[in-house]
């Protein structure tokens, strides 16, 4: 069969063509709703790993069979998925988290945080992570501890991981 550019750009509206369009629309909707949720990063709490304004996809199937692990960057939902928080898991259930002069201690041991670029002067008294919770913090700790949103959250709130 011979196709020319006109047929490609302005195809005849046939039943088969409409069916294909419908299939593509359904697949796109399902893919971007239930598998990869598109989002734009607003804010500076994960810099320099993730910069303000970047586009990304939240892969929602990541934690179907496994639980989040330390150092995973995760997407945390609020009431729904229109606004999600991007944070890094630093401690798991049962761990004791503490920050001394900007150094993060988990179970009284300093953990390796190669992703940090900015120093901080944060101090946080020891606290235990509850069952079915994880402790998350952003990579940018150069801001005041009062301004930065971090802490423990239920793993049920984790919707997935950024795809890149």
């Amino acid at each position: 069969m011979k196709y020319n550019i006109k047929d490609f750009l302005f195809p005849k509206i046939t039943k088969q063509y409409l069916f294909r369009i419908l299939l593509v629309a359904i697949f796109t909707f399902l893919f971007f709703s239930f598998i990869c949720l598109p989002f734009r990063i607003k804010g500076y709490s994960m810099e320099p790993t993730y910069m303000n304004g970047q586009l990304n996809l939240c892969f929602k199937l990541r934690y179907i069979f496994v639980k989040p692990e330390r150092y995973n960057v995760v997407c945390i939902r609020l009431a729904g998925e229109k606004v999600i928080l991007l944070k890094r898991v630093v401690a798991l259930e049962g761990d004791v988290v503490e920050i001394k002069n900007g150094t993060l201690l988990v179970n009284e041991k300093k953990i390796d945080e190669t992703y940090l670029r900015y120093s901080s002067d944060w101090n946080l008294s020891p606290r235990k992570v509850d069952k079915n919770n994880v402790y998350v913090i952003g990579d940018n700790r150069s801001v005041s501890i009062d301004v930065h949103k971090f802490g423990q959250t239920s793993i049920n709130r984790i919707v997935g991981v950024p795809l890149w």
């Binding site: 945390i76 609020l78 009431a79 928080l85 944070k87 946080l124 606290r127 998350v136 949103k149 971090f150 802490g151 423990q152 959250t153 709130r157």
Partner: peptide, 13 residues
Amino acid sequence: RLKEIEIVEVLRK
């Protein structure tokens, strides 16, 4: 009309 508002603590320090 609003009777009560609770701000949910999603991340608990």
